[in-house]
Structures are given as C-alpha cells and as structure tokens.
Design a protein around this nucleic acid. Structure first.
Lengths: 216, 216
DNA sequence: ATACGTTTGAAACAACTGTTTGAAACAAAG
DNA sequence: CTTTGTTTCAAACAGTTGTTTCAAACGTAT
C-alpha cells in the first residue's frame, strides 16, 4: 500500500527532525523533503502539524505501554507484595524500555524517544500534555503505585517527588546525550555507550529513591 | 534614565514569556507588547532576538557565578581537602542558588531560572550552547572538580555522569514544577512550596551521587 | 474499458515572523 | 534658541510558516 508507505516515511522523518530541532523549529517542508513526499501529504494524512506530533508519540508509547503492562503483570505474579523491591521494579522498567524499541538501531531510538518526551514536557505545554494525560495516565499511575508498594516506609508525597527527580535525571540525560558524551570524550577521554550510561543511571536512581533522610 | 527603563522592561517581559512558552514560540511582538515598548526597541537595544535571549541569561548567570565563586572560596578556606564532603558542597550550591535570586518573588524566579536553563539545553542547540560554554565554563568546571574532591573514591567518569543525572533531576523538576505541583495537589492533596521541594531534592541527589555500586 | 474513491502534485493563500527604515520626539550642551 | 546625539514610533519589508485548492495520476472494483 503506497498510503502506508507515505505515512511511515513521514513519521520517520518527523521523529528524527523533531528530536534534532524541537517541534516548533521543525517545518513541514523539511519533514516532507526528507521523507520524499509532497508538502500537502502531512495535512492530508494527519490533518495538521499538531496531529502529526501526537502520532509520532503514539507510535512510540502505544507498544511501550502495552509491553510494560504485561511485564508488570508477570512481575507482580512472581513476587508477593512484601518482597516487592525497588530494584526489581526498576529492572522491569529498564528491560521494557530497551525491548520496546525494536530494530537494529535501538540505542539511537532510545535517545530519540526520551528526548521527545523531554521536549513534550518543556516545550508546547498545551496540547501535548493533554494528549499524554488522556492517553497514558493509567500506565503512569500504575508504575507509581508499584514503586510505592516497594517503599512502604516512605511517605506518598516524598516518593512522588523522588520519582519525578528520577524521571528528570533520565529524560535530561538522554535529551542532551550527544553533547554530554562529547564533553566526556573531550574532558575525560572516555567513550560510554548508551547501555553503559543506563547501567550508571539505574544505581543513581536507586540511591536517590532509597535514601534515608538524615538529621542535619 | 529612560533607556535603562526600556531595557529592563524588555528583559523582564522576555524572561517571563520565554519561561512560559519557550524561545521560538515567543514573538518579539508579544514581548514588546507586554513590556509596553515599541516593536523596534528590541532590535535597537539588543541587536537581534538571539542577543536578547543571551542577555536574559547573562542577567541571571553573571551575579550567580560571581556569588558562587566567592562562596566556594569561603567554603574551601574553612575546610581542608580531607574533610571536604558532598553535603557541604551541595549546601553551598543550594544557598548560592537561593541567595542569587534577590527580590521578594525569589521562589518564582528560581523556577524561571532553571526552566530557562532546561530550555537552553534541549531547545536551540546552536548559539545558546556556545554562549554558555564560552562564558560560564570556568565556573562549571570548578564546581565539578570540587565535587570530585569530595568523592575521591569514585572514578572521574562515574562522577561526571552522576553529576549530570543530578543536574537533570533539578532542571527537569523546576522546568515543569507548576504542573508537578498541580498533580501532587490533585492526587495527594499536598501543597509543597519550592523550598520544600529543594529540601527533598538535595537528599535525593546526595543519595544518588554517594551511592555505592552493589554487585547484583 | 469505464467509473469511482483515494492519493499525489504544483501552486497559491493568508497569516505571521524578525528586521529595517526614516521621520518625529526627546534630552542635554553650546 | 539652536544643535547634537539618542531614543521612540508607525509603517513597511522580505521571508517563512501551516494550510488550502483543484487538477492530474493512481488503483480497483464493476
């Protein structure tokens, strides 16, 4: 089907360019040029630029949420609530994140995925936040409650903020990972791969979330 | 002086609108309208929109870096290198951050400041990154080396990434703090102030950076 | 082959962008 | 008052943006 071909070519080009330059800075002309389709194709197939942005997110988030849900089912079935530990939950998250990005260039797509998420949080506060909230809120709420079960001794409010601190460290890191890797390479002469960085990030998050508050 | 008045009115309006909508999404017409100045005033006083963006950052970062530098001098004078601990360094950072934002609305300005920083990292990868690098790299490198002194047993590479995980958690949190507070208020019926959140964030960062890697 | 709904194509549209212009208003000094 | 340099103003400029239009090309059932 030539329609499907055009649609996916637009999605691929949009995904790359959005991650590179942001939403407002990416023009429909640059997208359709890179996709080798006519300018009018975007408005014909998606209706508007806003709808195209949402379609790019949906192509990522729909399979991810489905996979995460089933992985959480399996995880909860194999462990009782008492033994639910943060390390296990984060393991499920990490594996789902990597597995949901199929294909040979999964490393790059992980960065793109998280960079787009970061852009959605900072940029374009209007329609994207509503779109994410109305489509993926149930999955978000579930992962929060699972983490809460693994830390019953920390107050709900504290845990809520620690989770978002952790989300922030992850999104920020991968949003600017190209420049961070360049700095590390230049200053420290190290060349960390994306899995390397994930292996450092997960313990950081564990340490931050599990941290006991000490009296000053 | 009416010139200075126009300049600061433009800077105030630009600062607010940039933080609200981002750089590309904010038009010069909306800035000059909110500042009650003529449209041409921006190009007359600053030269271009890019230069205006950099001026907004300079107004924040210049006093902050000067203050941080002297605070680090005082901190290093009062403690030997052996006793340099992460807790103390983060305390200096926190106090400098809050103190550099003078005025009665310091809470709001802290959010605006960090939100702009986050935008500079994700959006507009070109001129802003060069501007930040060429103007504030010495201060950045100093704070990194001080943290490294406080954690001599962690490898340079690990510490580099943990520092950026921490920066990410801070920037991300304050970039979207309005919506996060709204969610917390709606879901948990809590109303955390900005200092409350800082008090939770600092221990999180300490826990993440100090975290010992455990064998799986 | 004919007819019909779908998809593509080139061109134009209206709106908005940052920037420039040149005259007017202003302030300060001779 | 006149002159000088600085600042403001309304208007226009040239370029780009997302979107629309409508005819041509396409694929597919009758």
């Amino acid at each position: 089907m030539t329609q499907n071909d055009t649609v996916t070519r637009i999605l691929n080009a949009a995904e790359t360019l959005f991650a590179e330059k942001g939403f407002s800075e990416t023009t429909l002309r640059s997208i359709t040029e890179q996709a080798n389709v006519n300018l009018a194709a975007v408005n014909y197939h998606f209706g508007s630029k806003k709808a195209l942005i949402q379609a790019v997110f949906a192509r990522f988030l729909n399979p991810f949420c489905v996979l995460l849900d089933s992985n959480l089912d399996a995880f909860e079935a194999q462990t009782t609530k008492q033994t639910t530990d943060l390390h296990g939950v984060l393991g499920v998250l990490e594996r789902t994140l990597l597995a949901s990005l199929t294909g040979d260039t999964s490393q790059e797509r992980l960065s793109i995925f998280l960079r787009l998420l970061g852009l959605a949080y900072t940029q374009s506060q209007g329609h994207m936040r509503r779109f994410l909230k109305s489509n993926y809120d149930v999955t978000y709420k579930r992962i929060v409650s699972v983490i809460q079960e693994s830390n019953p001794d920390v107050s709900e409010n504290d845990l809520f903020w620690r989770i978002h601190f952790a989300v922030g460290s992850m999104i920020f890191t991968f949003s600017s990972i190209e420049s961070l890797r360049a700095i590390a390479n230049n200053d420290l002469h190290t060349d960390n791969t994306v899995p390397d960085i994930v292996k450092m990030l997960i313990p950081f998050i564990e340490g931050g979330i599990n941290r006991r508050l000490v009296a000053p």
